[in-house]
Structure formats: structure tokens, C-alpha cells
Amino acid sequence: MLAYIVRRLFAGGILLVAMSMITFILFFAIPSDPAQFACGKNCSLAQRAQVRKGLGYDKPVAVQWENFAVGVFKGRDYPDDKSLAKSAPQLIAHCAAPCLGYSRVNLQTVTQEFKQRIPVSASLALAAFLMWIIGGIGLGALAAVWKGTIIDRGVVGISLVFYAFPTFFVGLFLLKYLAIKWQVFPVPSYISIADGGLWNWFVNLILPALTLALFYMAGYVRMTRAFVLESMSEDYLRTAKAKGLAPRKILYKHTMRAALTPLVTMAGLDLAGLLGGAVITESVFNYNGLGKLVVDSVITFDLPTVVGLVLLLGAFVIVANIIVDILYALIDPRVRVG
């Protein structure tokens, strides 16, 4: 099992290296000049060349990638200019390892940017995850147990409504009624636990997390319902019934265990995706999370941030995949090696 995990982590590392290379190549394949962006509209050729040199874009792509890779482990200076470091050290920004680059747009290192953004997106993702897992699996199982009744139809129907409405509509709707009109909740803005304490962090998180959760929950309700029903028709449930087990025990021990297994895969990957930011929800509730950073960095042509984001989000998915596989082996003894 340990050898398996090490192997998977190693493969994940190689994948990340490949991803960083591809991102570099793609970025320079775009027919617009990042130096032109940084320099502005009224920019002479000489100025542009200077900016390009300052940003390090004058070197070949391979060298740029190499500098980047070295920076990840050793850290680097921006701009990497020894004579400038001597004459005007105040103009040099040092980017300590692990250095993912320095954003000329936001005037800080990508690592610093991530440090500010990750807690926002992670809080949102985890809160939403808890809500939709509890709600989705609970309601899905309820619908399956009461299959064909008004409870089943109600649960499935309502979850479908939330699935069909776009997130920005549900988000704005909740914002308008629950926060602004009836003032059940404060108008949400991200407050870290360090700044406002656990309670403020939590209360401000409810509406955006609910918006996300309602969307994801719909899928989980339908999936759980289907998996529970499938599991109910298995032969081993007839065995459990023939043993004389109480219906409650059959449901919790025998049915749900089998039904939840496929949901682990879904949940792991959905959570990993959401950790990388929820663009629309973050915008509606004015949360400065990774999702907003993705959009902003692409619009402003901020290469270091884009590369950093690609690697970070890729790492989330790779790690989530490994965790899901390990969980799978824990849940299903047939998967275990040996």
C-alpha cells in the first residue's frame, strides 16, 4: 500500500512538471506580446524591449522554464539582473522558495497571492462540501427509501429546480432576500478566523456556501437515490433480510455502505475542482478567492499567476485522485492489493 502511494505521488509530480511545460509553451504560442501588455499603449520599440528584458521574456522559452523550475526550489529575484541589484537594490523583489513567480500586475509573488486566496476558496469549498454531502446523501437516501411516494417526487423535483437555475441567479436571490431584505444573515464578505473569530467566519460563509451546495446537491440527491435503489436490489440485501435484521440496520449497515462507494469518487473530484475556486459564486458574493484570481490573471495576461494557478489546481486534482484511490481501497476490500 505504501509503495503504491509513493508510486502515485511520483507519477503526480511528473504530471505537474509536464503541465508546467505545456502551460509555458501554450502561453508563448499566443500571438500577443506580454511585454506589450505590461508596457502599455504608448510604448516605443526600445521601451518594449527593455520591459521584455526586465520581465525576462527575452530569453528562450526553455530557459524561462528552467529559471522557473529552479525558482520553485531555490527562490529567485525579479528582475534577475545582477547590475541592477547593485545599483538599485530597492527595485529588486525577492521571491523565496517555493517561488512560483512574481506578478507584475499585482506587484507581489504568486505564492503570496495564493496565501491570501486559498483560505477564502478553501473555506467556501469545505463549507459547501459539508452541506451538499450531508444534504445530498441524506435526501437521496430518503427519496430511495420512499421511492414513488410524494416524498421521493418532492425531493427529486426540488433538487432538479436548483440544478436547473444558474448559480448567479440562486446566489443573487439568496443575497437579495435572506441578506438584504429580511436580514437573516449579514451581507457576506470573507472574514478570516484570525480577524473575526470562528462565528463571524461561519455566518458570513453560509450564503455563498449554500449557493454552491444547492447546485451540487441536486446531482448528489439523484446519484445517491440511484445507488441506494441499485444496492437495495442486490442479493446480499435479501440475505440480510432473511437473517432477521431490522430494516434500519439493513439500510445503514448493508445498503448505504455499498451505495456510498461510487459517491466517494465523485465527491473527491468535485471537492478538488471547487478548491480551485468557484468563479461565479465568488463574484456574486465578492469573495476574493482563487476563482476570481483565475479570471483576472487571464484577462491581464499575467503569466506567472496563470502558470502558478494551473499547477496549483492541477495539484489539487492529482492529490484528490490519490486520496480517492486510497479511500476506495479502505472501503472496498476487493480493491486492496495482495
Binding site: D235, Y236, A258, T261, I331, R334
Partner: peptide
């Protein structure tokens, strides 16, 4: 009761 297919009649987990 004993069932026909003992593999599917037992819970795999």
C-alpha cells in the same frame, strides 16, 4: 434460507 449464488448473496465489504 440459503441462496443460489453465494458470492452475490454475501456483502462484499
Amino acid at each position: 434460507m440459503i441462496f443460489q449464488d453465494p458470492l452475490s448473496a454475501m456483502h462484499p465489504y
